[in-house]
């Protein structure tokens, strides 16, 4: 590269790099430091205490509940994204008419904010007046009628289903893109061979949409780990912390309890968890594709 271009490279990079460092990379490092301090605005304390916050965290039942909820959310969200996203995309790819309209309908939730999604589903879950309870009563299951978001047993699955509604749109888009890019000859060959549909899906379709599958997996994992807005809107983490995720706990410790040090420790755990899961997944999928080739 000529010297003149090198100078321009750094001039071009200066603003993005500076902003990113100040807003993302710098604060992340600061949070790592804060997680090692006892810093409580209400108590007025601010001192270095090593790993004490983490010790406290690992003995905190609220933390373990948030951790378990986040893990459950991640696994359930991942499976739902893969199964329903693929099924809908596959169905859409086999339509003969109206595909643009139907596609737009399925895409619609993606344009909405999670605040609005939470509000939308609130009207399905409400006790008695919600669509679910009304339908149950009409169909003759009055004993199943309940306040879905207030019942400790149903609250978390209910919130996850609302979140999944939008997540399925996202994974469907990606699967559809993957499916429409698969060369037609592959399918024609499979049909000539007389392969049945399940066999076609397993042996022809799934192997040829590998990149789409990894994008769907990564996004479902990241979005599940980040889940905050929809919980805040629908349940605020209740009842009894049953819907609290690590993101919500981080927020609550910092901006409700003003325990900045402890909140930073929670954020660090969330960060490390994200990196381990995404890094682990990337590593496994890379090794898998290396072995195949």
């Amino acid at each position: 590269m000529v010297g003149r271009s090198r100078r321009w490279a750094w001039i071009f990079l200066s603003l993005p790099l500076g902003t990113y460092t100040a807003v993302v990379a710098g604060p992340t490092l600061y949070s790592f430091y804060f997680s090692l301090t006892d810093w409580n605005i209400l108590k007025g304390s601010h001192k270095f205490i090593g790993f004490a916050n983490f010790t406290r965290l690992f003995h905190d039942s609220e933390f373990w509940q948030a951790f378990t909820n986040t893990a459950f959310w991640t696994v359930a969200g991942l499976i739902a994204s893969l199964v329903f996203g693929f099924a809908l995309a596959f169905g859409l790819s086999r339509t003969t008419w109206g595909s643009r309209l139907i596609k737009s309908m399925f895409f619609m939730p993606l344009a909405l904010s999670l605040v609005v999604v939470g509000f939308i589903w609130f009207w399905l879950y409400r006790l008695d007046f919600g669509l679910i309870d009304m339908t149950l009563r009409h169909l003759g299951f009055p004993h199943l009628v309940q306040d879905w978001l207030a019942n400790p047993r149903t609250a978390l699955p209910s919130v996850i289903i609302a979140w999944t509604w939008q997540q399925i749109s996202l994974s469907m888009i990606i699967f559809l893109a993957g499916l429409t890019a698969v060369p037609a000859e592959l399918f024609e060959a499979a049909q000539v061979d007389g392969a049945r549909l399940p066999a076609q899906i397993r042996h022809v379709i799934i192997p040829s949409i590998g990149p789409a599958i990894s994008v769907v997996i990564s996004l479902a994992l990241i979005n599940a780990l980040k889940s905050f807005d929809i919980v805040y809107v629908m349940t605020q983490g209740g009842p009894y912390g049953k819907t609290e995720t690590l993101s919500v706990m981080t927020y609550r410790e910092a901006f409700k309890k003003y325990d900045f040090g402890y909140s930073s420790a929670t954020a660090v755990v969330l960060f490390v968890m994200t990196i381990l899961i995404i890094g682990g997944y990337t590593y496994i999928s890379k090794r898998g594709s290396d072995e195949r080739s």
Binding site: F90, R94, T96, G98, L179
Partner: peptide, 25 residues
């Protein structure tokens, strides 16, 4: 990643699938 769906490569669809997908939508 998108192409027009009328160049879709997945094996031939049917009108019934369209009705089903519309109902699901």
């Amino acid at each position: 990643p998108f192409r027009r769906s009328d160049t879709s490569a997945v094996s031939k669809g049917s009108s019934r699938v369209s009705w089903l997908m519309l109902a699901l939508a």
